[in-house]
Amino acid sequence: MKYKFEIICLLLIVGLFALTQIVGNQFYFFIGFVILQYMVMAIAWNVLGGYGGYVNFGSAGFLATGAYTAVALINFLDVGLVEQMIAGGIIAGLLGLATGYLTLRLRGVYFAIATLALAIILETIVAHWDYVGGAAGTSILPKRKPELLGELIVDRKEGIFGNYKEFLFFLMGTVAIICVWISRYIENSKLGRGLNAIKDSEEAAECMGVPTMRLKLIATAISGGMMGVAGAPLASYLTFIDPLSAFNLEYAINAIAMPMIGGTVSWAGPVIGALLLGTAQQVSSLWIQSELNLLIVGVVLVVFVIIAPEGIIGWFRKSRKGSAR
């Protein structure tokens, strides 16, 4: 069937919605949101890093751009969550385009350093911008009885969702599924093949007719946009935001570690990586010790670099090939 994958995606979205209606324990939505947010970050990172070979260390900067776009919009216009996410995606996408234009002439480790610098510059700007809370941060009170297209969305009695956690979980889940669809589409498109050629040898790609600069700019814009969408609901989720939580290095590290562990060659890699690593982190930090999650990332990453440098997907492909021979 031609649209098999699309139908599965739609069913998954319906499934997510059903979960919010059936499961009563809010705690699951609370940690589910974090895992899904990481998944979007990992998928976004992989568009540029996995397909194109450009390592972005500044993922937190794009996520925070989305988050602070949302904060500014709440302060300025008091718009709803969905609008915040769309705006966050557009602004972070444009930021991706602009930084791409400035930094994509750099390669390898120099590009990585430039993206890290970008995140630090943005953090400094936000810390001195009092309108969105400055260095001290600001609290965000979710709108009471929000409406979307005339429907009451969140209300204990009459709303579609009983509370904000369910709504945020559903939104982030839907975004994650859309991002999976986009990254799978890119992987099988001319853009994806061109990015792969760039990863293998940029000069050869350029000499074989691949418009390298244009493809890299498209990839940074898409990647940045996805990260912005993932970041926009952060303020509503935490009900408080400050530069330290929005520009947290954990975002940048996880966005790299999850695709690496899952495998960067395929859209499924970041999804698997985010599910495994994200779940392990949440479980360990909630039940064992809250500082344990970064240690887990470190250990798992070292193990994978040694045993399966191409991630879980690469390891499976290799072992299947090996048994076929």
């Binding site: 093949r193 061109g194 293998d200 000069e203 074989m208 691949v210 418009p211």
Partner: peptide
């Protein structure tokens, strides 16, 4: 079109996929 002195194949692709890149682009 040119070849390179030190071969620069697209090493994650098969031989025929290497040829498909210029064909497509």
């Amino acid at each position: 079109a040119r070849s390179f002195q030190i071969p620069r194949p697209f090493h994650t692709m098969t031989v025929i996929e290497n040829l498909m890149i210029p064909a497509e682009f």
